[in-house]
Design a binder for these strands. Structure first.
Lengths: 169, 169
DNA sequence: TATTGTTATACTCTATAACTATA
DNA sequence: TATAGTTATAGAGTATAACAATA
């Protein structure tokens, strides 16, 4: 691997394993000084995963965020806009068009809440439940492909745990 | 529902203790069915890292991709558009405006190549080298913060290795 | 013919301000 | 006053088609 530029000295105790992977100088991928950069690697992985997702989900025409909304509303029906947006990690203002699209396709609905007439209780329609069923099969294929690449479910769990350390605070 | 989201008892990846955070059902962060999804976690981590990057790089006004270009041209001067774009993982057509901005700020230059007059040899200016020097210090701070969160450089290397398994193929 | 840089364009994702209707 | 949903808008990031100069 590429020894991130200079400073790599701190904590002399850390055993420096040499890791002799001779990364090939392929087409658009010559070895570059970014290979040891966490953000770069995470972004490249995210792009690769989302592309694979889109590829697998072509027949149900769902993007990652849309699929996530369906899953959330399936697991916890009746949530409000702000709640679902929060779980997705997007602004509530950007959730509107997302929910519009799902409603327009007849996959989800907004019901006026009885307790607070400002908010909406969000639910899947039967058609939404049916499409989610289809989508879950495609998701299994997609996710299992990733798990296989990683080396199994335990490695997957290990990766998720490491990523949580970055996200948590 | 998901079979993949089951079994979650793997031992932590690295030399780091159990960290008994009883994940609070905080503001926009109630426990949700996406927590075991690789793509979701990777995306959340990527967003968090980039936000932290932007925050640290405010005083040099460089976004991740721009900083990456400076680093690449510092390490390997004379590369062509298509080569740098390939290392960044973006289309060459989208690299043009990125390079335009760097050139307009006087940080990098395009020189006509002698061997192939279609292409440009890209170089940093002295001003670009100087700004990169400043930026590298900010980068160290940013990156060291991530490494500390992860639990050390070995854990970082472990994460990079797992992410490579996804990207490689 | 193929490739390099380029323009134009469009679509997605994200971010901010301000409005409305409720509370 | 504050909150939930909404609209409008602007900025990045990414994708495709097509063109001129050069190979």
């Amino acid at each position: 691997m590429a020894k991130t530029t200079a400073a790599r000295k701190s904590k002399a105790a850390a055993p420096r394993q040499e890791h002799t992977t001779e990364t090939p100088d392929a087409l658009g991928a010559r070895s570059n000084p970014l290979d040891g950069v966490i953000g770069y690697k995470v972004r490249r992985a995210q792009v690769a995963i989302f592309q694979d997702f889109i590829h697998h989900f072509k027949e149900v025409d769902l993007r990652p965020a849309e699929f996530s909304v369906l899953r959330i509303l399936h697991e916890t029906p009746g949530l409000k806009h702000a709640e679902v947006a929060g779980m997705l990690g997007i602004k509530r203002t950007n959730f509107v068009s997302l929910m519009d699209a799902l409603e327009k396709r007849g996959l989800a609905t907004r019901r006026k809440s009885g307790t607070d007439r400002r908010s909406h209780a969000l639910h899947l329609t039967p058609k939404g439940e049916a499409l989610l069923g289809e989508a879950m099969k495609l998701f299994e294929t997609h996710e299992n492909g990733l798990i296989r690449k990683l080396g199994g479910e335990e490695v997957r769990d290990q990766l998720l745990e490491l990523l949580s350390r970055i996200t948590e605070e």
